[in-house]
């Protein structure tokens, strides 16, 4: 479990900090990206086991970033787990874009634990 690498895509700096602290607390390594485009760049450089994706972000939002990720996976057997972090309940939009699950803000430690045990 400890070798798993998580990417948290979140435009709010405080929430990025919080996410890192939360994963540290449950014993996982998390890296962060500031928006969808930043996430795509990071995915090219490194392999992640799980992505937590904010939906409303500047430059490239979570939904469009997911669509691009799924597009790039088409010709391979790869499928990275993407979990939506959303404040509003537009879960249908997230699922149809290719996300695997969703959680609502604010995100509590127990929520993260359950999510990790389900998907990692």
């Amino acid at each position: 479990m400890n070798d798993k690498l998580i990417l948290v895509v979140e435009d709010d700096e405080d929430l990025r900090y919080l996410a890192k602290q939360q994963f540290k607390k449950i014993g996982l390594n998390a890296e962060t990206a500031t928006d969808g485009q930043d996430a795509l760049n990071k995915l090219k450089e490194k392999k992640y086991d799980l992505i937590l994706m904010d939906v409303m972000m500047p430059v490239l939002n979570g939904v469009n970033a997911t669509i691009q990720i799924r597009e790039s996976e088409k010709n391979s057997n790869n499928h990275i787990t993407i979990i939506a972090m959303t404040a509003v309940s537009d879960k249908e939009r997230c699922i149809s874009a290719g996300m695997d699950d969703y959680i609502f803000k604010p995100i509590m430690l127990d929520t993260l634990k359950a999510l990790v045990s389900k998907w990692l």
């Binding site: 929430l15 919080l18 404040a87 803000k105």
Partner: peptide, 16 residues
């Protein structure tokens, strides 16, 4: 959104 974002930070940090 403007309220929920700092609120999420506050709650999460408080929990930690």
């Amino acid at each position: 959104h403007e309220i929920r974002t700092p609120m999420s930070g506050l709650i999460g940090l408080a929990e930690l």
